[in-house]
Design a protein around this nucleic acid. Sequence first.
DNA 1: TATGAATGAGGCTTCATTCAT
DNA 2: GATGAATGAAGCCTCATTCAT
Lengths: 214, 214, 214, 214
Amino acid sequence: MNMTEINIRLAAIKLISRNGYESMSLRQLAAEAGINASTLYIYYKGKSELLLELILDYLQGLSREWARCRPRTSTADVKLRAFIACHVRYHLEHQDEAMLGNLEFRSLGAEDLQQVRQARRQYLKALQELLEQGVKEGSLSCAEPKLMARTLFNMLTHACVWYQADGRWGIDDVIRHYSDLVLKMLGAESLVPPPVSVPRTVINRRSVPLEVRP
Amino acid sequence: MNMTEINIRLAAIKLISRNGYESMSLRQLAAEAGINASTLYIYYKGKSELLLELILDYLQGLSREWARCRPRTSTADVKLRAFIACHVRYHLEHQDEAMLGNLEFRSLGAEDLQQVRQARRQYLKALQELLEQGVKEGSLSCAEPKLMARTLFNMLTHACVWYQADGRWGIDDVIRHYSDLVLKMLGAESLVPPPVSVPRTVINRRSVPLEVRP
Amino acid sequence: MNMTEINIRLAAIKLISRNGYESMSLRQLAAEAGINASTLYIYYKGKSELLLELILDYLQGLSREWARCRPRTSTADVKLRAFIACHVRYHLEHQDEAMLGNLEFRSLGAEDLQQVRQARRQYLKALQELLEQGVKEGSLSCAEPKLMARTLFNMLTHACVWYQADGRWGIDDVIRHYSDLVLKMLGAESLVPPPVSVPRTVINRRSVPLEVRP
Amino acid sequence: MNMTEINIRLAAIKLISRNGYESMSLRQLAAEAGINASTLYIYYKGKSELLLELILDYLQGLSREWARCRPRTSTADVKLRAFIACHVRYHLEHQDEAMLGNLEFRSLGAEDLQQVRQARRQYLKALQELLEQGVKEGSLSCAEPKLMARTLFNMLTHACVWYQADGRWGIDDVIRHYSDLVLKMLGAESLVPPPVSVPRTVINRRSVPLEVRP
DNA sequence: TATGAATGAGGCTTCATTCAT
DNA sequence: GATGAATGAAGCCTCATTCAT
């Protein structure tokens, strides 16, 4: 990825997360990226391909991050805390991609949507299995693991809507906040989780702070 | 509101909730409503006014419903259960308006956005105050009532994303499901809530089942 | 067909016959027709639909003219002279449509092309049958009637390439010229044909003089 | 002409004869020729220069062929038969170039058009003089030699529209067919022409079979 | 000689909107 | 109240062409 392509992606993430995919014109995008509109077609077949790549990137980044962080051998509640930490951290460090990745499905064509759904299902499956393990072990209480996975995903992802990088809370505060809520919700006993040590994350240059919120 | 206007709104709710405001062309809308595109301008000053009205309608309907349902004198946990029942029921009976009302802010102009934010804040404030009452009474445990109000709003509203009117679950099942989760989350003791009696709701003809989900 | 549509067609026939379909931009067409480019889409679904209509109009006009002129009961050579008169006259009175109708196939989509080929084949079939009748009667000599039909079509149509409305020759001169050539070619005896009386032709307003020729 | 240039011309002849000059994009051409689009500019100043060269090549090839074949001292009818053989053979062996050379004038600029017209006129003049000689000698009957030259050119050239290299007819059959027609048309007596011996033609590698026909 | 990246102009088409009827 | 015709602006995209490498 050369500088031009990086600039395109940064600009696209910014504009789409702010105003939505449909609202972003390619002229606007090109202006933001500092290039001519026709140059976009050197890197993408069209507007929709760009969207697909951004959404898939978000989901793949998320999956990769969890693959990197997840404890291999632990009880489910430990894993769950790690999951929360990983998911929330990723979303706060990639607010814009995350907004985009969760709000702009609608604009995908049928075929592209399949790919995205596939990637999403896979990630949710991992969470669901984690919950099922917890139920089996007795450490988590959850009647509908599949639905709960979606509920948790929604809840944790919501962080990137209200979080402000320059606000009162740090990322770790947010993680603790959600860990507390979720573990209560799932009826786990120990409400004071031990600190979760997270492997160093690679710096992601593409994350841009976002201020537009409902 | 005569038949023409009703048809316009029904069509708009359907199309916007499915494909998004930006994707809906006025010709498409007119076709769905069975009228000529120019006729739209008899009822609305423009495309954005229609959006504003639909979003405000959703929020006002929600507020009105809560005003109608809310227990005047009760402990906070009883009120909270009533809130959950009211909010969830409203969203499942107005899935499309709710999708629209929560996803299409972005397309509002600055001024319109102020109005919507105002209405939204007001509704959230009611929930926040309810939580604060609970904290004061000791029946609810919640460190950040303002944030928690937004979290609950998000969580309960999420129901309208996955709920299927013709699926396994009835509306009351969903209400019970969320009541359980939320009350656990807020550390209230009694996990088996007494049945909440809801005043008869007026039938809302505008709600149309929605199948497009992430 | 209201004035706007008439203007569009006149402009299209002029521009396409002069510079070719691909070379005509819709902006140019609209300017020539004295309207805004978007108005074109009120009358045609797109550029290609316009082309299809023009080509089919040419072929249908030609067929209709022959249906109107053709002698019902005559020997083949009389019919052939009538055919030549009819075909040549039509092409000289519709030079531009004819140029367009014979040169712009290539730009049609596969489906549209089928329609055009169908109409063309039908017209050629009539000529072919005429030739076959002549062979049977012994008045015409022609080894390959199908190929000869195409050859004659090409030869007679060629008139509209070199004919100049304001030149030395009148339409009847051209008809006599081709009648002579063709009847010689087909080995018919009487080389001095009696005058062919042609039914009055309806004036076709759409015919515009054309000056660009190879 | 090195391989690259040959490939460009082969590709251009193929694409232009099939879809027309305007429809051929330089990217498409480069792809067909197996090179990069910018490379085209090493060989041609631009798209239109390429077209000019191809059309002039066709006309020059045709003239050169006639110069090679034409009988120096003969009666006009013998010369005419030789002309027909030469012209038809050339067109059937160069179908694509011929299509292109006769259909794509329109896309030439004014200046280039002059050159092409000049070359064309010169070739037609030769034919015209041949006819005039025949009239003078009494072997051919033709009232308008100039027009007849154009008519014959059109008629003979038409062969390349319907001829199929793998069809029923061989090139010599087509030549005989047209010789017969033309000589009848011009009122020459001997309808069974003696075989015309044609000097060996150099193989032209650029001729590619063409299937798109009206 | 050959290329990949880049561009400005312009292609076709659709948009929200207006207005006379 | 309702419409059909019309429009200017802008949408996405492709074009022929240039230039540094």
